[in-house]
Computed example of a mutant assay.
Amino acid sequence: MKFSQLIILTIISIATFYIMVDNPKITLEIYISTIALTACYGAIKKAPNVLHIALILLFVNLVDYIIFAFGIIDLSTAGKNRVLHGSLIYGVQLIISVTSVIILIFRVQLSRILSHSKKIELTYFDGLFHWIFIYLSMIYILAIIELFARHTFGLHSITIIHYNFTSLVYIGWAMSCALLLTMIISTEQKSNLQESDSH
C-alpha cells in the first residue's frame, strides 16, 4: 500500500469512527488526546517543529472545548433567538478557526520567538495544517449563511450544512489526525536516517 493511500485510508477510518461515536464532546476529547500524545512525542524526541505544531492545535482545540463543553456559550436553543444564537455559536468557532489559520501560517516565526532551538524550520506540514482550518472556516461561514437563509428568509429546505455539520467538522479533525500521524512517521524516518548516516 502506498503512503498516500495509507493517509486517505486513515482519514476515512478516523472520520467514520468519529461519526459512529456521534457525540461531539467525546469526539473532541479523543481528538484533543491524539494531539496531546503528538505533543508528548515531540517533547520526548526533542522535535520542536512537531511539538510546536501540536501545542498550537492543542491550545486552539482546548479553547473551543472550554467555551462549549463548560457552557460558556450554551448550545441549547430553547427559548432563544435561533438566528442570533446560531450566529454566536458559528461566529465564535469561525473566529477561533481564522485565528488558527493566522497562527499556523506564522508558526515558524512564533516558534523562534518561543524557542532558541536550531532545529526550528519551515516543514512540509506548515504548508498543510492551516488548510484544515480554512476548510473548517468555510463550513462555519456556510453554516451562518444557511442559518440566515432558513430563519430569516424562510428557505427551510436548505439544510445541507445543518444536518451534516458535525460530520463535516469530523472530516476536518480526521484530516488533522492523519497529518499528525504522517508528521510522526516522517520525523521517525528522518531521525532513523540521521542515525544510520552517523554510524
Rank of each mutant, 00 (worst) to 15 (best):
I72S: 00
S100F: 02
R82L: 15
T77R: 10
G79H: 08
S97W: 00
L110D: 10
S97A: 14
L104D: 07
A78Y: 13
V101Y: 02
S100T: 14
T99Q: 09
Q109T: 06
G71C: 08
G91L: 07
I113N: 05
L114Q: 10
N81C: 05
L110N: 11
S76T: 11
I89T: 10
V83W: 03
D74L: 09
I89M: 13
I103D: 03
L88G: 00
S111G: 14
Q109V: 03
I103G: 02
I102V: 13
V92F: 11
L75I: 09
Q93R: 14
R112C: 04
Y90N: 10
V108N: 13
K80W: 03
V83M: 04
G71N: 11
K80G: 01
R112M: 10
R112G: 02
L84H: 02
H85G: 01
R107N: 15
I105S: 04
G91A: 07
V98T: 12
F106T: 12
V98H: 02
I102Y: 07
K80L: 06
I96F: 02
T99Y: 07
L94K: 02
I102R: 04
V92S: 10
L88T: 11
I96Y: 02
L88S: 05
K80D: 01
K80A: 03
Q93K: 14
Q109H: 13
L94N: 03
I102H: 03
F106R: 12
T77M: 14
V92T: 15
V98M: 10
I105Y: 10
Y90R: 12
S76P: 04
G91E: 11
G86E: 04
F106S: 12
S76W: 09
I105Q: 08
S111F: 06
K80I: 00
V92A: 13
V101P: 03
V92D: 01
Y90D: 09
I73L: 13
V108C: 13
I89C: 05
G79W: 03
R107S: 15
Q93V: 01
I95T: 07
I89K: 10
L75W: 09
S97K: 00
H85L: 04
I96L: 15
G79N: 13
R82H: 10
I96R: 01
G71M: 04
T99W: 06
I96K: 00
L94M: 11
G86V: 05
R107W: 08
I102C: 05
L110W: 14
A78H: 13
L94P: 00
R82Q: 10
I103M: 11
R112T: 06
V83L: 12
L88R: 04
L104R: 08
S76H: 08
S87C: 11
K80V: 01
G86D: 05
V108G: 08
A78T: 14
K80M: 07
L114S: 14
G91D: 10
V108M: 14
S100I: 01
I72F: 06
G86F: 05
S111R: 03
L84M: 11
I105N: 07
I103W: 09
A78M: 13
G91T: 08
F106P: 05
G91P: 13
G79C: 02
Q109P: 04
S87Y: 03
G79M: 03
K80P: 00
G71R: 11
T77L: 14
L84T: 08
V108L: 12
V83D: 01
A78K: 15
I95M: 12
I95W: 01
V101R: 00
G71I: 06
L75Y: 12
S111M: 12
I103R: 02
V101H: 04
H85R: 09
